[in-house]
Amino acid sequence: MSLVRLAGGGVLALVLFACDAGDGPDSPSLVVYSSVDESLAQQMLGAFKADTGISVNMIGDTEAFKSTGLAARIRAEAARPLADVFWSSEVAQVAMLAREGLLQPVRTASTRNWPEMWRDQDHYWHGFSPRPRVIVWDPARLADDEVPDTWSEVLSDQFRGQVAIADPRFGTTGGHLASMRQWWLDQGRAQAWQSFLDALSRSQVQVRSGGNAATVDAVVRGEALLGMTDMDDVLAARRAGHELHMRLLHHEQGPGAGAMLTPNAVALVRGSHNKAEAEQFIDWLLSPRAARLLAASPSANMPLPESVRGEFPQLMVHDWLDVDHTAAAANWQVAMDEVLAALRGAS
């Protein structure tokens, strides 16, 4: 009798464990690895399904490691990929996968005419709906006119130990620093980058694990005067009731040295079993409809299509950092080595 009970318990255990094995694959479906906020991604995927009838299964990662974790997973699954599309909230990891040959080029009607600045040369990835990097501060502790105008000035002695940044090994912070380096090197000004590294080393920046949200929290809680973060994280904090100011800092005075815009990036994984649906999804993400949805969403991404720009004048950034995203991503690892050495040297 007890054995029967026991066997029943074991079967029950397995049933419980696998009890929500998901819907059957009767409708066309896709697997998307996405490092975008899960709630936003679900809305977008719901809209895509409403428009096309294709259902999308999304896999994300924890906030701290987002794109990096998913990229590592794509590498590990190279022999038998699970993902069809990789939708990343920043470019560097996607570009690295492209160089490793883990992606396929996408040449469709939308991608063919996509602006060169926002895509890979051979159409391996396409950037869209960027959001700016900003400096955030609490107006109760720092007056607006005391806030520096450029990123280099943020690392000045005046703010030593008072600046918070997210872990540069992950997410948009690393992408931003790599882009800065690329921009200076492209202009033949390696010394400027070296000065920035030296300032980084001297400035005792607070490096926060927990991503950009932790950086904003440091400013809110008074542990730092300035925070280097994404605009959508500041908006989230404001929605939570915190009074914060932010500014899109320039990298230097003059045109083409303006705010850093971090685009979303989407790519087709090599070996995908649903190539047609995946390309349809990529086209949809690059369409004005998706741009409009993302602009109206809480993360307030800047729309790239001309037809949508007029509807969101408050989101338009007219002077951005004119950086070669592909090259920046290609040299991301080198940039990280230098940044980490500077930060470790400081501690």
């Binding site: 709630s39 299964n57 924890t62 949200a213």
Partner: peptide, 22 residues
């Protein structure tokens, strides 16, 4: 994050961690 089957939707813990960050 690594082993949840895609068909089951985003795991609870991922949604929870996202909710805390956002």
């Amino acid at each position: 994050a690594r082993l949840a089957p895609p068909g089951q939707g985003p795991p609870l813990v991922s949604r929870l961690v996202d909710a805390m960050h956002y």
